[in-house]
């Protein structure tokens, strides 16, 4: 492991194979954005609204559950389409894993992934220490403030909705907030926004707490400790228990399944691993907290499910 900046250079895999999940993810992220932009840019109104709430083909409502919850906590009762839309989004991410939103849909991921990539390329090692639990505190704050003030306070600064709404309806000065997130991720805290602070991501993580889709390390005995997976992972703390099998408090061995709700299921660990340690696994969480499942092919259904969103 000579150069910490680069991933293993002696990779036996072709480039495309090492980046297929990444390409799929970018395709999905930009595809979602493109669907929303079809209307404003070309007058083809397949989807209207934005990620806060949208209407597809005049029939499919989708609403961000966190936003609708804030709206309700401020003391108003939503319209039926809003409730149905939030229900559908809840169901979708409850099944697929909440933070799939973060890595496959959220536009801010493009910004923070760029910061993380640049951080690696420029060899910026220093990073301020910040608890990854801060996002839960912030989520609490985001939910508390509408109760106390009657206003959706978080929406005055929320980079997620600012960026998506901005790209579709005009961004104003909101790009400054995104620039701040980028610089903060690049220079101050590695994976600082998505991995430590974002309450939207925390909310989606909670939504996906029982999701049956997991990244797993079934061939962990093949691991040669090159650390590539840790370098690309936006939430590297989730890998260790599954890969090293040593995190169970009871002293028992941990299943080779990444069961942390922080995992965004971006699939980068699967593709960067030279020894194909990782794969996709389907299975509900059993009563013994183990994942009941059999291994499925790494290339399985995330692709289609992601694209459908």
């Amino acid at each position: 492991m000579a150069d910490s900046r680069r991933l293993s250079t002696d990779s036996r895999k072709p480039w495309l194979k090492r980046h297929r999940w990444l390409l799929l993810r970018r395709f999905n992220q930009l595809g979602v954005l493109f669907m929303f932009l079809l209307g404003p840019l070309f007058g083809a109104w397949l989807v209207t609204g934005n990620l806060s709430s949208s209407m597809t083909l005049d029939i499919l409502p989708l609403t961000d559950p966190l936003l609708l919850t804030q709206s309700m906590l401020s003391g108003s009762w939503p319209a039926t389409t809003g409730l149905i839309g939030a229900g559908l989004v809840l169901l979708f991410y409850a099944l697929l894993g909440g933070r799939v939103f973060c890595s496959w849909v959220c536009p801010v991921n493009l910004v923070t992934d760029l910061a993380a990539w640049l951080r690696r390329r420029l060899g910026i090692r220093s990073s301020a220490r910040l608890s990854r639990n801060l996002r839960w505190w912030l989520l609490g704050l985001v939910l508390l403030l509408p109760v106390l003030t009657g206003t959706m306070v978080w929406e005055y600064v929320n980079p997620v909705s600012m960026l998506h709404r901005g790209l579709i309806f005009g961004i104003g000065w909101a790009w400054l907030i995104l620039a701040a997130v980028f610089l903060y991720d690049l220079l101050i805290v590695s994976r600082g926004w998505c991995g430590h602070l974002c309450p939207v991501g925390a909310c989606y993580a909670a939504i996906g707490v029982a999701a049956p889709v997991h990244i797993a390390a079934p061939r962990r005995d093949q691991c040669d400790d090159c650390l590539d997976c840790f370098k690309v992972c936006p939430e590297p703390q989730v890998i260790k228990p599954a890969l090293k099998g040593s995190a169970l408090r009871s002293g028992g061995r941990h299943d080779p399944v990444i069961d942390s709700i922080d995992c965004t299921k971006c699939g980068r660990c699967i593709e960067v691993c030279d020894r194909d340690v990782f794969g996709l696994r389907l299975g509900w969480r059993g009563q013994d907290q183990q994942i009941n499942s059999k291994l499925s092919e790494p290339t399985a259904s995330l692709k289609q499910q992601g694209l459908q969103h």
Partner: peptide, 14 residues
Amino acid sequence: DFQGACIRCGLCVR
């Protein structure tokens, strides 16, 4: 009340 309820989706605009 509007400031609390509106989720800033822009569907009315569209």
